[in-house]
């Protein structure tokens, strides 16, 4: 039986890397008494798939992982049992059952929401100017960036990968971008590019980034319809 778990990561745990979070959950499932399914072979491991790794330093209220269990009890009770095993800063937000033939979270991811706040005294410009500059940025027909991989360098247009971008009255940036294996756009790259095009120094330390949610695309015929991984 497959279950999808949504969890949040805030505060000190933002410094814990992806691999360590995986190990952390493996142990948490054992402590919570989950009847986990294991892979075959001499070194069996729990069947867990994370939707998408979260970078060190980022917070989130929209992390997902799919797990496979041999048997499951009442999902609310399971959620409570798992929540009781969490370290401060890791919050279990929901658990729901998946169809047997459902795709796993990693293969489904198509988009993500991020919120970026600036650290105290590190706003690059007043809120109204930032709103205007972001609007100009989004009005560009294309936004070219140089993508370096180990083997090659190529110019990519990231504009089509930015689905939405706005600035709140408090000066926080909200963005919805493409995510997942097909085209993953990191919010840091959007911000760096914005800074470059506006002749601003790009200091990643200034940005407090949180992932808010992750989505799959249920649209048809090239039309996008993003649905939260919690709802599918």
């Amino acid at each position: 039986m497959k279950l999808r778990i949504r969890f949040g990561k805030h505060g000190v745990v933002k410094f814990i890397g992806h691999l360590d979070m995986m190990r952390y959950f493996q142990k948490a499932f054992r402590r919570a008494g989950f009847d986990m399914a294991y892979s075959k072979g001499f070194h069996p491991h729990q069947l867990i798939t994370f939707a998408s790794p979260l970078g060190v330093g980022l917070e989130s209220s929209g992390e997902y992982m799919d797990i496979e269990v041999v048997s499951a009890g009442d999902l609310d009770e399971m959620k409570a049992a798992l929540a009781a095993q969490m370290a401060e800063g890791v919050e279990i937000l929901s658990i729901h059952a998946l169809d047997e033939n459902a795709g796993n979270a990693m293969s489904l991811v198509a988009g993500a929401d991020y919120k970026i706040a600036f650290r105290e005294d590190m706003m690059p410009m007043p809120v109204s100017d930032l709103k205007a500059a972001m609007a100009d940025f989004m009005a560009r027909p294309e936004i070219q960036v140089l993508k370096k991989t180990k083997k090659s360098e190529r110019i990519v247009d990231i504009r089509p990968l930015i689905y939405d971008l706005s600035v709140t009255d408090q000066g926080e940036i909200l963005m919805q971008v493409s995510a997942g294996s097909a085209a993953n756009l990191k919010p840091e790259l959007v911000l760096e590019t914005f800074c470059r095009l506006n002749d601003l120094p790009a200091d990643p330390y200034a940005w407090l980034i949180s992932r808010l949610d992750m989505y799959t695309d249920l649209g048809k015929d090239g039309e996008r319809r993003l649905v939260s991984l919690e709802k599918c």
Binding site: V12, V13, F15, I16, G17, K27, E88
Partner: peptide, 8 residues
């Protein structure tokens, strides 16, 4: 993580 504490 060496300096955070917060372990189970």
């Amino acid at each position: 993580t060496r300096y955070l504490g917060n372990e189970i």
